[in-house]
């Protein structure tokens, strides 16, 4: 409708890659796996049979061989050749982003996170063996501060494995204001693109009007983003991998807007998370889930 009223092109551009190799992302549960073949039940309920490339690697809390992944694991697969050849698998991976509500425990730390009004409260565990790696990046593991880590789900318990970023020095309620903008048009939006666990293809975006999105924490961002709506089409480009696609805004990214970090995947990005992609969209754009971010440039289609 917006395209109709303003005379824009209603057909968004499709996935493009500078090197010509398009990536597919498949999300599902392993039904069977052998050294050369993996059978997955996708989120749509379809059964997919994929060939495992000889160079393919897997991740499940650490590097693993694809054939060693247990049946029943939830996987996200980066696939080549129209989604038929497995290039990389992430099994039982999860991302824990939120505001720390409480921390308890002496060896294994149990942390309660407030993941925003639409994602609710989540209990995670920082196991003793990875607590050093996490705490060196999160020196203030105290209520009110932001937390972001990547881990695995074992027996329905999310275990933090690697920190996804360094801890912001401010409390979650004291997000620094965006840099002053004097331009008449929106200046170039470059920054960090991160991923989150949601399954809809698309992106979560921080700068939504609270009255439209029903998200009372929306509208906070330290990247100087323009206001958009749920359903707006964003043109997201992975600057590191040279891949771009058009994605709809499907959720409120109120938590992503509170992080003012930079991504150093290839060069240093400007400050601030501009989009939080679904895991499959992130993989399609060439991102590595264990790294947690890529340098992105975003425009409107």
């Amino acid at each position: 409708m917006a395209a109709a009223v303003l005379g824009r092109d209603p057909d968004p551009p499709r996935l493009t890659a500078d090197d010509g190799v398009l990536l597919d992302a498949i999300s599902g549960v392993i039904l069977d796996v052998s050294p050369h073949l993996i059978i997955v039940e996708t989120d749509d309920g379809d059964e997919e049979r994929l060939v495992i490339a000889p160079w393919a690697t897997a991740w499940r809390g650490g590097t693993a061989t694809p054939a060693d992944l247990p049946v029943g694991s939830r996987v996200i697969i980066r696939a080549l050749r129209s989604g038929k050849v497995v290039d990389r698998i992430w099994a039982d991976i999860t991302r824990m982003t939120g505001i720390i509500r409480s921390v308890s425990g002496r060896t294994d730390l149990a942390v309660e996170l407030d993941c925003g009004p639409h994602r609710g409260v989540r209990s995670i565990v920082i196991p003793y063996r990875s607590s050093g790696r996490v705490r060196v990046r999160y020196p203030k593991l105290e209520p009110g501060y932001l937390f972001d880590a990547i881990g695995v789900i074992r027996d329905d318990v999310p275990l933090a494995q690697v920190p996804a970023t360094s801890q912001p020095a401010y409390r979650a309620g004291a997000v620094p204001p965006p840099p002053a903008a004097y331009g008449g048009v929106q200046s170039k939006i470059s920054g960090t693109a991160v991923w989150s666990d949601f399954t809809d293809r698309g992106a979560a975006y921080a700068m939504l009007e609270r009255s439209d999105s029903g998200c009372e924490d929306a509208g906070v961002s330290c990247a100087g983003l323009p206001y958009l709506a749920l359903g707006s089409m964003l043109y997201v480009r992975n600057v590191c991998a040279g891949r771009a696609t058009a994605l709809p805004v499907v959720a409120c990214g109120c938590m992503a807007g509170r992080f003012c970090d930079r991504c150093v995947e290839c060069g240093t990005s400007p400050r601030g998370r501009i989009v939080e992609l679904s895991a499959t969209s992130y993989v399609e754009l060439g991102g590595d889930l264990t790294k947690g971010c890529f340098n992105a440039r975003v425009g409107l289609t």
């Binding site: 331009g183 048009v185 929106q186 200046s187 170039k188 043109y235 425009g299 409107l300």
Partner: peptide, 15 residues
């Protein structure tokens, strides 16, 4: 000056 400024991809198109 507006060509030189780092406008968002597509912002120049709105001008």
């Amino acid at each position: 000056a507006s060509v030189g400024s780092e406008a968002e991809p597509g912002a120049l198109g709105r001008l």
